[in-house]
C-alpha cells in the first residue's frame, strides 16, 4: 500500500494512475460487497417499479468522527432515511467525495468501512461514485454527497404532506437533539459527549415495519434533520394549510440534552437529529404505531407528541407543562453549523 502514500495527494483526484489505485485498492476494497459499480461513466440498473423516489444530500460534518459513527455512516443514513420516509424501499446510493489534500488515508478507510457497515444494515448498494481532491484548505478534510434511489411496489403508499388530515396524531420516534449536542460537545469539548450519543441510524427497517402494519393509516413521515422538529412542523403547517399543537411534556428529550441546550442557549426543538422520524397518522392507529416503533431498537423512545388541527392561521403551538401556550416559530437566526 505504500505506493498510495499514507495521505491523500492531489494526484489521487486527477483521473490518472493514482486515482485508479485509490478507487480500486481503497474505495472498492473497503466497500466490499456493497459496491455494485461498473467502473464506467454510468451504471445501468434494471428493476421493475411503477414509481421511484430520488433524493440527494451533502454532508459537511465537523468533527468528521463521533462516538459510534462518522461522516460516512451519516452520509448513508441521511439519504436512506430521506427515501424511507417517502414510503419507498431504498435500494441504491451514489457516493461522491471531495477530499482535502493531506487527508490521512487511514481516516478515509475508516469512513469507507462505516459506509459499508451502514449500507449493509440498510440493505442498499453503492452503484456509482466520484472522487475529487482539492488543495489544502479548499475543503475541511472530507465532504460527501450521496444520492439515493428507492422503489415503490404497486400497492405502496406515497407518503406526502397532502395526505395529512386535521385530527391526525403527530408521533416522533426518538429523543430530540441528541445528535446535535453530541457533535457540538465533541467539537468544543463540552463534557456531554459521553452522556448524549448521536442517534445516527438507518431507519428504513423500522419504517418498513410500521408501514407494513399500519399501511394507509399513516399519512406522512418526515426525517427530523436540519432545523429540527420546530422547523419541520412549521413547514408542514404552512404547506398543508393547517395548525399543529404539541404537548411539551410529551416530547422525549434526554435530561442531559435539556442541560446542554440550556447551557448553550439553544432550543432542542430546533436541533438536528439523524435517526428520528416524525409521523402523521390517524389518531386511532397512533397507539399501535408507537408500540410497534418502541419494539424496534431505533424507536424505543417513540411518543405521540401532538395533533394536527383545522385552523386558518397555520400556527404550530406548544402547550407547556402549566397549560400555557406559545407559538413555535420558524427557526430565527443562524443555525448551528456543520452538524450534518
Amino acid at each position: 500500500m505504500n505506493y498510495l502514500s499514507d495521505r491523500i495527494v492531489l494526484d489521487h483526484g486527477t483521473g490518472g494512475k493514482l486515482s485508479g489505485d485509490l478507487i480500486r485498492d481503497v474505495i472498492v476494497r473497503c466497500l466490499g460487497e456493497t459496491h455494485r459499480g461498473q467502473m464506467e461513466d454510468s451504471t445501468v440498473l434494471e428493476w421493475k417499479a411503477d414509481r421511484i423516489a430520488i433524493t440527494t444530500d451533502s454532508f459537511v460534518l465537523d468533527p468528521i468522527f463521533f462516538h459510534g459513527g462518522n461522516i460516512g455512516k451519516l452520509a448513508v443514513c441521511g439519504t436512506v432515511n430521506d427515501l424511507a420516509v417517502s414510503g419507498a424501499k431504498p435500494l441504491y446510493l451514489t457516493l461522491a467525495f471531495v477530499l482535502e489534500e493531506g487527508f490521512p488515508l487511514s481516516d478515509f478507510e475508516q469512513i469507507l468501512h462505516s459506509i459499508r457497515d451502514a449500507a449493509l444494515e440498510a440493505e442498499v448498494y453503492i452503484v456509482a461514485g466520484d472522487t475529487k481532491v482539492v488543495k489544502r484548505g479548499e475543503v475541511d478534510k472530507i465532504f460527501i454527497n450521496t444520492s439515493g434511489i428507492g422503489i415503490f411496489q404497486p400497492n405502496d403508499i406515497h407518503l406526502s404532506i397532502s395526505s395529512i388530515r386535521p385530527g391526525d396524531d403527530v408521533i416522533i420516534s426518538g429523543q430530540l437533539g441528541n445528535h446535535s449536542i453530541h457533535i457540538l460537545s465533541i467539537r468544543e469539548g463540552l463534557g456531554f459527549e459521553r452522556r448524549i450519543q448521536s442517534d445516527c441510524a438507518p431507519l428504513n427497517d423500522m419504517i418498513a415495519g410500521v408501514l407494513k402494519e399500519f399501511g394507509n393509516r399513516i399519512h406522512c413521515m418526515r426525517d427530523i434533520t436540519r432545523g429540527g422538529l420546530g422547523t419541520l412542523l412549521n413547514e408542514i403547517s404552512q404547506l398543508g394549510g393547517f395548525g399543529v399543537r404539541i404537548e411539551q411534556v410529551r416530547l422525549p428529550i434526554l435530561h442531559e440534552t435539556v442541560m446542554a441546550a440550556d447551557m448553550l442557549g439553544v432550543n432542542p426543538l430546533y436541533l438536528a437529529n439523524e435517526g428520528n422520524v416524525c409521523i402523521f397518522a390517524s389518531s386511532g392507529a397512533s397507539k399501535g404505531i408507537v408500540e410497534t416503533l418502541r419494539r424496534h431498537r431505533y424507536g424505543e423512545h417513540a411518543s405521540v407528541i401532538g395533533k394536527v388541527l383545522e385552523c386558518d392561521d397555520c400556527h404550530v403551538v406548544m402547550c407547556g407543562e402549566g397549560g400555557e401556550e406559545k407559538i413555535v416559530q420558524l427557526l430565527q437566526g443562524a443555525e448551528l453549523p456543520r452538524l450534518c
Binding site: 463540552l190 463534557g191 456531554f192 459521553r194 452522556r195 442531559e256 442541560m259 447551557m263
Partner: peptide
C-alpha cells in the same frame, strides 16, 4: 467552568 462542572457531575 460550566463545562468542566457538567463533565465532573456526569
Amino acid at each position: 467552568v460550566q463545562t468542566t462542572a457538567a463533565d465532573a457531575y456526569f
